[in-house]
């Protein structure tokens, strides 16, 4: 691969610009679906793009007492983390731009980077709403991270590889949603937790803490955090559908499977009431983690006995 193609892959297609645009488009689909379910009209198709453009054009107001390096650096780190994670994922059903054995673990940790950055950003701005929001963001991270990782581990275990591309290939012949239903549910709900979608939106519950950790952010910084979340949405949908929904092998299969997942997610957002942070943690550790662990145990035993 020469430098030009690498740069093209990294910056334009399928990662980089295209990914961001697709992410915003999916964000619009999610918002529109939720709005229609709630009997509202919902935004027009270009709303997320317009919001982003507007935010980029606006001044970023820096609170007086923050550490400026962190304040301006964290949104960049968040976006960079999310975009880097995209390199190892079969985006739009195409082959990953890069892969190596063990890239699954790297991807999952890179996916947590935006959340960590949001947490740090909240701590750094030290507004009262931001601090409470940051605490909640990080608490929630510790709640869903382990079960989500375990849910991703299931397919890796049966495919016998830590490489996303290999698992994707294996999954194209095995619909793991049927053999590992618990893992699928935990992965999907974990994704909602990662994206802080209702009912896991306690970290940004507007009726208590305004906008949570990002309360003090405006302009470019806010836009970058928003984009990294859209990117995360695409990566998460790609991961879950390639692992559990029979793999991704082309743009049509990506569109079909990820949109189906998005529909399920928006229905859940509409139906469920926000959980308090203690209820979120309780849900993950009392049900999510234990169920996935039980499933893993069954799989390991079964594999061991079969060998």
């Amino acid at each position: 691969m020469n430098t030009f193609t690498s740069l093209f892959t990294l910056l334009i297609f399928p990662a980089g610009l295209t990914l961001m645009l697709v992410g915003m488009f999916y964000e619009w689909i999610d918002r529109k679906l939720v709005a229609r379910f709630q009997n509202r009209v919902g935004p027009r198709w270009f709303q997320p793009f317009a919001d982003t453009l507007k935010l980029f054009a606006k001044e970023q107001i820096k609170p007086a007492i923050v550490n400026p390096y962190l304040f301006f650096g964290l949104p960049i780190a968040a976006l960079a983390g999310a975009l880097t994670a995209a390199l190892y994922v079969p985006l739009m059903g195409l082959n990953p731009a890069s892969n190596f054995p063990g890239d699954l673990i790297v991807t999952i940790y890179l996916l947590s980077l935006p959340t960590m950055c949001v947490g740090l950003a909240g701590w750094n701005t030290s507004g009262r709403f931001s601090l409470i929001g940051a605490t909640r963001t990080l608490t929630q991270l510790f709640a869903y991270e382990a079960p989500f990782l375990l849910a991703m581990l299931g397919p890796a275990l049966v495919a016998g590889s830590w490489q996303i591309n290999t698992i994707n290939g294996y999954a194209q012949n095995h619909w793991l949603i049927f053999t590992q239903p618990v893992g699928f549910i935990v992965a999907l709900i974990g994704l909602m937790g990662k994206l802080e979608l209702p009912p896991f939106d306690a970290p940004e519950a507007e009726t208590e803490i305004v906008a949570g950790a990002l309360t003090e952010y405006s302009g470019r910084g806010l836009a970058m955090f928003k984009i990294s979340r859209s990117v995360e949405l695409i990566i998460g949908l790609s991961l879950v559908s390639s692992f559990y929904l029979g793999g991704l092998n082309g743009i049509p299969s990506f569109l079909f499977k990820s949109l189906a997942l998005l529909l399920v997610m928006s229905v859940l957002q509409v139906l469920l009431t926000r959980l308090r942070i203690d209820q979120t943690v309780g849900l993950w550790w009392r049900f999510g983690a234990i169920l996935v662990l039980a499933q893993l145990l069954v799989m390991i035993l079964w594999k061991g006995l079969a060998l």
Partner: peptide, 16 residues
Amino acid sequence: AAHEAGFDTLFMYSWR
């Protein structure tokens, strides 16, 4: 009340 609890769907329907 539904909005405060984070159940916006009920909020939208009851206001409709």
